[in-house]
Design a protein around this nucleic acid. Structure first.
Lengths: 138, 138
DNA sequence: TTGTAATTGCAAGTAATTTGCGTTTGTGAT
DNA sequence: ATCACAAACGCAAATTACTTGCAATTACAA
């Protein structure tokens, strides 16, 4: 997928296309992995103050332009909302691989339907383990 | 399953059976759902100071007596370590249902094996949606 | 009963995130 | 172009969740 026009994305959702927000979307796009908020903060400190960053993430998440991801760290991660997928996280170095499986998605929907008195609208699946590099190093 | 002898559980893992820890295990046992730390804190404030609670949770998690669960809230949740399972969380009222499916577990293992250069050791799956009560109320 | 390491609680500290508020800026209307 | 106004901004301060240092206490094995 080629890089979207972020100005249009923002305006289409009723937001102003400010330099900070454009830089944020650009950053999340090129990263293509969930990024911890403090890292985003560090990378964007020239264009966006932390408070504004938090407010932007909140607004953009509500508009489903970005997504919050919980990777069992002390801080939240965010990534662009693209096609639905999951993550394989190395618990020693923190590296993340995006993963996807249609079979798995079907199974999750099926399990969700079996839960009584419950309407499934979203789910999160994170795999935790060790990447090759860390296993070898240990 | 009937309530275990928590004193034995603690001592068996090399811990002292202190009143605070016994109360903590008792509470998590009867709750049978992931509990947010601040709520545990509130319920146990008579027997366990917050600092001690955090230290107890850390120690008991390392010994796999309790488990930390991330439910996309600002705070961690903990539950007793019993048979592996997942959760269906109502995003409006926070109610949690425990869920389990062998088929699903197999599928997750299978997907995990397909991730290159990665050894799967754990995973978390949370379903988010609305419980009947909240759908009706809305 | 007693020694000792495990556990505790207070006081203080830190990291992530939020709120209040006055100022600036993007954008649609003139 | 420029104006008007809500959206977005940034500073300062507050809050929440959680951690650390250390001296006092306590469970429990000997």
């Amino acid at each position: 997928m080629s890089q979207p026009n972020f100005k249009e994305v923002l305006q289409g959702a009723g937001f102003k296309a400010t330099p900070g927000r454009l830089a944020l979307l650009e950053l999340l796009w090129v990263q293509d992995k969930p990024m911890p908020v403090p890292m985003i903060e560090e990378k964007l400190k020239r264009v966006l103050n932390p408070v504004t960053l938090y407010r932007a993430l909140e607004a953009l998440e509500a508009a489903d332009i970005v997504q919050r991801v919980d990777l069992q760290h002390r801080h939240a991660h965010y990534e662009m909302s693209k096609t639905h997928h999951h993550h394989a996280v190395c618990t020693s170095c923190g590296t993340v691989e995006n993963i996807h499986s249609d079979e798995l998605e079907e199974m999750i929907q099926k399990v969700g339907k079996k839960v009584s008195r419950f309407t499934l609208s979203a789910h999160s699946l994170e795999l935790f383990g060790s990447c090759n590099t860390c296993v070898t190093a240990a």
